[in-house]
Amino acid sequence: YTAFGDLEVFLHGLGLEHMTDLLKERDITLRHLLTMREDEFTKNGITSKDQQKILAALKELQ
C-alpha cells in the first residue's frame, strides 16, 4: 500500500504523472512547484508544454 502525496495527486490531476519521478529526484515539493519561476521550470527539465499545464492550473487556484 502506498499513499500518494500532494505532489502526486496534483500532477495526476493534470495528466502529468510522468513528471513525478523527475521532481522527486530533484527534491521539488508541491510547495516549491507552486512558487517556481519560468527559468526554474526549464532548469529542472520541465518542458514548456507541461509548464503551461501547471501554470494554467495555478491560475485557477488563485
Score class of each variant (00 low, 15 high):
44 N>R: 08
16 L>P: 03
44 N>C: 13
32 H>L: 05
31 R>E: 13
32 H>C: 07
1 Y>P: 10
57 A>N: 10
1 Y>W: 06
25 E>R: 15
50 D>W: 00
11 L>R: 00
6 D>W: 02
43 K>N: 07
22 L>T: 12
25 E>M: 08
1 Y>Q: 05
49 K>H: 11
5 G>N: 10
30 L>D: 01
17 E>L: 06
54 I>G: 04
22 L>C: 09
41 F>K: 03
59 K>A: 11
4 F>P: 14
13 G>S: 15
8 E>N: 10
50 D>V: 02
17 E>Y: 08
29 T>H: 06
7 L>G: 00
21 D>S: 10
57 A>R: 13
30 L>E: 03
3 A>N: 14
48 S>F: 10
24 K>C: 03
9 V>Y: 07
29 T>N: 08
12 H>P: 03
6 D>G: 09
18 H>Y: 10
62 Q>P: 15
51 Q>L: 04
9 V>W: 10
38 E>I: 04
10 F>H: 02
45 G>K: 04
57 A>I: 03
23 L>W: 01
43 K>W: 06
56 A>F: 09
36 M>S: 00
58 L>N: 15
7 L>R: 02
35 T>R: 09
21 D>I: 06
13 G>R: 14
28 I>M: 04
53 K>S: 07
49 K>Q: 10
8 E>M: 05
17 E>W: 00
24 K>E: 04
40 E>Y: 02
33 L>N: 00
40 E>K: 01
15 G>E: 05
5 G>F: 08
30 L>C: 05
15 G>K: 07
41 F>L: 12
19 M>A: 08
8 E>S: 08
37 R>E: 13
47 T>N: 11
7 L>V: 02
8 E>V: 03
55 L>R: 13
44 N>F: 13
34 L>I: 13
14 L>I: 13
54 I>R: 03
13 G>V: 04
32 H>T: 11
37 R>A: 09
24 K>S: 07
47 T>V: 08
7 L>M: 13
13 G>P: 04
24 K>M: 06
2 T>C: 07
20 T>I: 12
11 L>G: 02
46 I>S: 02
12 H>N: 15
38 E>K: 09
12 H>T: 15
40 E>H: 03
5 G>E: 14
40 E>M: 03
29 T>L: 02
10 F>Y: 07
59 K>C: 09
24 K>T: 05
32 H>W: 01
11 L>T: 03
14 L>Q: 09
55 L>N: 14
27 D>S: 11
12 H>V: 09
53 K>A: 09
42 T>P: 09
3 A>I: 09
42 T>R: 11
24 K>A: 07
17 E>S: 15
26 R>V: 00
10 F>M: 05
57 A>G: 15
3 A>W: 08
21 D>W: 04
28 I>Y: 02
58 L>Y: 10
6 D>E: 13
51 Q>S: 13
50 D>E: 11
34 L>K: 12
22 L>H: 15
21 D>Q: 11
1 Y>G: 12
16 L>F: 04
60 E>G: 11
2 T>E: 05
39 D>M: 05
56 A>G: 14
16 L>I: 05
33 L>C: 05
24 K>L: 07
29 T>R: 02
5 G>V: 07
21 D>A: 11
8 E>W: 03
34 L>A: 14
50 D>N: 06
41 F>G: 03
8 E>Q: 09
27 D>R: 11
54 I>C: 07
49 K>A: 13
56 A>R: 11
53 K>Q: 06
6 D>P: 07
29 T>Q: 07
53 K>E: 06
35 T>C: 08
53 K>W: 02
50 D>M: 01
44 N>H: 08
61 L>W: 13
35 T>E: 11
19 M>Q: 04
3 A>Y: 09
54 I>K: 05
12 H>F: 03
43 K>R: 10
51 Q>P: 02
60 E>L: 14
14 L>C: 14
35 T>H: 04
62 Q>T: 10
3 A>P: 13
2 T>W: 03
12 H>D: 11
60 E>N: 15
3 A>M: 09
17 E>V: 08
34 L>Q: 14
10 F>G: 02
20 T>W: 07
19 M>G: 01
45 G>I: 02
23 L>I: 03
35 T>P: 01
46 I>K: 01
21 D>M: 09
10 F>A: 05
10 F>P: 01
36 M>R: 00
31 R>A: 10
16 L>M: 09
40 E>C: 03
47 T>C: 12
16 L>K: 00
1 Y>E: 15
59 K>D: 10
36 M>I: 00
41 F>D: 01
34 L>F: 10
49 K>I: 07
47 T>M: 10
7 L>H: 00
42 T>M: 14
4 F>E: 15
42 T>S: 12
61 L>P: 15
27 D>P: 02
45 G>Y: 02
22 L>E: 10
47 T>L: 08
52 Q>R: 10
9 V>N: 15
55 L>D: 06
38 E>Y: 02
5 G>D: 12
42 T>W: 06
20 T>K: 13
60 E>T: 14
51 Q>V: 08
62 Q>D: 08
21 D>N: 09
9 V>L: 12
20 T>C: 12
46 I>H: 00
59 K>Q: 10
51 Q>N: 05
6 D>N: 10
49 K>F: 06
37 R>W: 01
50 D>A: 05
2 T>I: 06
32 H>A: 11
48 S>L: 13
3 A>V: 09
14 L>T: 09
33 L>T: 00
23 L>K: 02
62 Q>E: 05
39 D>R: 06
59 K>T: 12
7 L>E: 03
38 E>P: 14
18 H>M: 05
30 L>S: 04
32 H>M: 12
57 A>H: 13
31 R>S: 08
12 H>K: 15
37 R>M: 08
6 D>T: 06
56 A>I: 10
53 K>R: 10
8 E>Y: 07
9 V>I: 11
20 T>R: 08
51 Q>F: 07
9 V>H: 15
39 D>H: 05
43 K>F: 06
60 E>F: 10
37 R>I: 03
55 L>V: 13
38 E>S: 11
35 T>F: 06
30 L>N: 02
17 E>T: 14
23 L>V: 04
49 K>S: 11
51 Q>T: 13
40 E>L: 02
33 L>W: 02
41 F>M: 14
10 F>W: 05
29 T>I: 01
38 E>N: 08
4 F>Y: 09
33 L>P: 01
21 D>V: 08
4 F>S: 14
52 Q>E: 11
13 G>W: 04
3 A>L: 08
54 I>H: 03
11 L>V: 02
33 L>M: 06
